[in-house]
């Protein structure tokens, strides 16, 4: 379980996160949605222990999130951060030296499933194949938590579908949890158990996808747009 209590993050005068209380149970795939600048990436980085909160506490399986939490949590950044001269295989070997939970053969199986050539150098791969390789490297870790920052962003629909299928095939919903930020809500919705809606650094809503459909008779994107509009209209925020 991931538990956040009263988490705040300030960058200078800008408040990126304000009083965030959040529980992420194990065995779920949860989407983190919200407009640009709503605090999604900051929240993921804080849980991954890559950024410290200005105040508040974060616990992952009862342990305080610090840099060492990175060994429990597989974080996949939005950006391309790999050495371009590495081959896919070399990238996996590198991951093996960095993470105790990295399973080299699982990463290769994922890569093969996604049709990424193991011997190709990253710089020669298409953008889509680099995305697939990054996903394979991340799923190669046998982590309890996968934190994915915009896993679909910038990819064509075929690559997105591959990444979605890889996630379903190679994560165990009994024991593993995926928390991913995304703007591709329509594509991601069938993959998600629940959605966390962030708006201007606060959690505006946290709801199961099937509940949204069952109770409100709308899909996630309509629900989200409605809530953000209502929030703006109610004028209860002072920073506009």
């Amino acid at each position: 379980m991931i538990a956040l209590e009263q988490v705040e993050k300030n960058y200078g005068k800008k408040q990126a996160l304000k009083g965030v209380n959040l529980i992420i149970p194990p065995g779920k795939i949860i989407g983190l949605v919200g407009e640009n600048g709503s605090g999604k990436s900051t929240l993921l980085k804080i849980i991954a222990g890559l950024t410290t909160p200005s105040s508040g506490t974060i616990q992952v399986n009862g342990l305080k999130a610090t840099r060492s939490i990175a060994s429990k949590v597989a974080y996949m950044p939005d950006a391309d951060v790999f050495y371009p001269f590495y081959s896919v295989e070399k990238l996996f070997r590198f991951y093996e030296t960095q993470f105790e939970d990295f399973n080299y053969s699982k990463a290769c199986i994922v890569a093969q499933y996604l049709n990424v050539p193991l011997d190709a150098k990253l710089k020669t791969l298409s953008k889509g194949n680099r995305g697939r390789a990054k996903m394979a490297a991340t799923l190669g870790r046998e982590a309890s938590y996968y934190l994915l920052d915009e896993p679909f962003s910038g990819f064509d629909p075929i690559v997105r579908e591959d990444i979605i299928k890889g996630m379903i095939q190679f994560t165990d919903t009994e024991t593993q949890t995926v928390l991913m930020s995304t703007h591709e809500i329509r594509e991601a919705e069938p993959l998600l158990d629940a959605i966390i809606l962030l708006n201007q650094g606060k959690i505006l809503a946290y709801e199961e996808v099937e509940t949204i459909r069952d109770q409100f008779r709308m899909d996630a994107i309509t629900w989200m747009t409605k809530l953000i509009k209502e929030g703006d209209l109610s004028g209860n925020e002072t920073y506009r």
Binding site: G27, K28, I29, E161, I164, K165, I168, Q169, T173, P190, L191, L192, D193, E210
Partner: peptide, 16 residues
């Protein structure tokens, strides 16, 4: 469950 989930692209919990 997993085969079907992958085929249609949905969460395995939903398929379960």
């Amino acid at each position: 469950v997993r085969e079907y989930a992958v085929e249609v692209g949905v969460n395995a919990n939903t398929m379960q």
